[in-house]
């Protein structure tokens, strides 16, 4: 065998090795979601854990909380983030820099620091008489604020490709500024907004530290419930729950890529 071939085999082996290592823990979890046992020991095939996901009141309320918070916060973040991404190019320099810096601080800052900052903030505004309970309100605010910069990053590339004269064209043709933005500009940004929303949604789903520090005592999300239960030996139904989430996302990605692939194919046929 020649040298080139050997190095190619090594390279491929390396790629597959990393993939296997990344997926091994997840596969173990998936396999053991189909057996009814508290620890990861095989106890015969069973769907019991899947039943438990939908019956256990703690888990169902955590799922509901997680989804509501993720949906509301990523919708808010998409709206504010898209408007920001559009307007930022027309700001005066110092303001532009200020907005950029706020976004960067949010992205780069360690989540523990952000979590403590939010906690102190909510304590303080409560102490000056603004009633805000730990739970939905605080978590939706926190998740919205931490995900806005990611939406801006997803939408900005689309805005750079916009025709800069569209806005003036809309105004000249008699549409008001808001009308122009909502009916001419925004429709062209939809793909960036969708990926920004998806990113914000996943970040909210996966957040643990900021949620843990600001959730109060009565509201739990999937993350905080897992953390709370892990110290006593993890509630086994979570294996089933994350298998469901994992498979759903996998299917969504496959479908998304299949559609994209077909669209690209049709496009390339046309040319």
């Amino acid at each position: 065998m020649n040298k080139k071939k050997v190095s190619k085999i090594f390279a491929k082996a390396f790629i597959y090795l990393v993939i296997v290592l990344l997926y091994l823990p997840i596969m173990v979890m998936v396999v053991y979601s189909f057996t009814n046992s508290n620890t990861m020991t095989w106890n015969g095939f069973s769907f019991a854990l899947y039943q438990r996901v939908f019956v256990d009141p703690g888990i169902s309320s955590a799922i509901r909380n997680t989804l509501v918070i993720a949906l509301v916060s990523s919708t808010l973040a998409t709206v504010i983030g898209t408007l920001t991404a559009y307007g930022i190019g027309y700001m005066r320099r110092p303001f532009k820099k200020a907005v950029g810096a706020m976004g960067q601080i949010t992205i780069v800052n360690s989540d523990v620091v952000t979590a403590v900052a939010f906690m102190l903030f909510f304590i303080t505004i409560r102490s000056i008489g603004i009633p805000i309970n730990d739970g939905y309100a605080t978590l939706i605010i926190a998740h919205t604020v931490i995900t806005i910069p990611y939406v801006v990053l997803s939408v900005s590339p689309k805005i750079r490709r916009l025709n800069p004269n569209l806005y003036e064209a809309g105004l000249d043709l008699g549409a008001g500024p808001l009308n122009t933005v909502f009916r001419v500009i925004l429709p062209q940004l939809v793909s960036g907004m969708v990926s920004g929303f998806a990113l914000a949604f996943t970040l909210s789903l996966d957040d643990f530290v900021i949620t843990q520090f600001n959730k109060g005592t009565s509201v739990n999300t999937i993350s905080t419930l897992i953390y709370a239960s892990a110290s006593k030996g993890l509630e086994p139904a979570f294996r089933a729950l994350s298998t469901i989430i994992f498979v759903t996302i996998l299917l969504a990605l496959v479908a998304f890529n299949a559609i994209k692939y077909r669209r690209d194919k049709i496009k390339s046929k046309k040319h």
Binding site: I80, T84, G89, Y90, F95, V99, A117, P177
Partner: peptide, 29 residues
């Protein structure tokens, strides 16, 4: 007067209240 940069005002307000103030509160505490 409405200008395109007005679209960033929501985030300016949000950022000021929920990014800058909380960080200053860390200093304060």
């Amino acid at each position: 007067k409405f200008h395109r940069r007005s679209f960033t005002y929501p985030y300016l307000v949000v950022g000021l209240f929920f990014v800058v103030v909380p960080l200053l509160l860390i200093l304060f505490y």
